[in-house]
């Protein structure tokens, strides 16, 4: 799969402060790319470089194989974290204006807006002023404006903040649908469960450096700890625990079950999980046998702490 966006060793300094240090990322076409990192890591600066808001000191950015230039403005849709709309302007006028800035003709913008407004059931807001709308309502308009010009690359910075769960879900479905229609999405958020759910690829930025990237599944494999969470019903739990401790690296696990079972995390050292399972079935009734996959949250915390 080819890459839609290539960021090659981009650096950016603000005075003495290094905001980005030699950061490179590749965003595959048609993927949802999670851009992660603690507050102040440099995510927003990177996003602004991609949007040509900030010029990098060094390094280059390619979109669809072409070095980034002003023609790409219409190919990118950007929903910033710090977002808002003109408070005293009417919803329709405002959306038309913003769409025209992205290169749509007025007529085309109008048709598409009508479609989106109906789709999100906000058609009757056209003549309302933004200051009359609630925050969540304004966010919906903002979302429509971001995707209206059908850009190749969509950049969402914390897209779900300000939405109730129902609307957040609605927006999530729209993002997935847009991806199906061929858009590539860069997704920056602190909500790890949505990264888990949506992202195909991730990159982790910490203190201006990229410290981790790749396909989410590869990253998880890389952080695999070969540990299984096991629940087993045995008559003498203590004896069994001692026996297992001698053979494997064992710690007490915490999960909910119906019966009173022995709950352990068992780390295998190059052993076949089947051998462990066979071994366990001889000791009692196995009710729970799950490989522990590191969550994005764990990976995030672990990597950031180690750096």
């Amino acid at each position: 799969m080819s890459n839609l966006l290539e960021v090659n060793s981009v650096s950016k300094n603000f005075g003495d402060f290094k905001a980005l240090n030699n950061v490179s990322i590749s965003v595959p076409k048609g993927s949802i790319f999670g851009l992660l990192g603690p507050n102040g890591a440099g995510k927003t600066t990177l996003i602004r470089v991609i949007n040509q808001i900030t010029m990098p000191d060094s390094g280059s950015v390619f979109l669809d194989g072409v070095i980034l230039n002003s023609n790409h403005i219409k190919d990118i849709g950007y929903l910033p974290e710090e977002r808002g709309l003109y408070k005293s302007m009417k919803v329709g006028e405002q959306a038309l204006y913003l769409a025209q800035l992205k290169g749509l003709s007025k007529a085309e913008a109008k048709t598409r807006l009508k479609y989106w407004f109906e789709r999100l059931e906000i058609g009757d807001w056209w003549n309302k002023k933004i200051q009359e709308l609630s925050k969540g309502m304004a966010q919906k308009i903002q979302f429509v404006v971001t995707v209206l010009h059908q850009p190749k690359l969509l950049i969402f910075d914390e897209p779900f903040s300000g939405f109730d769960p129902i609307n957040a879900n609605l927006i999530k479905d729209e993002i997935l649908r847009l991806r199906e229609d061929g858009a590539t999405v860069i997704f920056s958020t602190h909500r790890m469960e949505s990264v888990e759910e949506l992202c195909d690829d991730i990159a982790l930025i910490h203190k201006s450096n990229k410290i981790l990237d790749g396909r989410l599944i590869d990253v998880k494999r890389q952080y695999k700890i070969n540990t299984f969470e096991v629940g087993i019903r045995a008559n003498d739990k203590l004896a069994l625990q001692k026996e297992l401790s001698d053979k494997f690296e064992v710690s007490v696990a915490n999960f909910k079950t119906l019966e009173d079972e022995l709950k352990l995390n068992i780390k295998l050292n190059n052993n076949n999980p089947n051998d462990l399972l066979n071994y366990l079935t001889n000791k009692g009734m196995v009710s729970h046998f799950v490989e522990l996959i590191p969550s994005v949250n764990d990976i995030f915390i672990q990597t950031v702490k180690n750096n």
């Binding site: 949007n51 808001i53 002003s70 403005i73 950007y78 977002r83 709309l85 003109y86 913003l98 800035l101």
Partner: peptide, 17 residues
């Protein structure tokens, strides 16, 4: 100042120099 306080500026600035 209005564009700054209403936080629309970043949206605009991603389309316009």
């Amino acid at each position: 100042i209005e564009e700054k306080t209403s936080r629309i500026i970043e949206v605009i600035i991603s389309s316009v120099k």
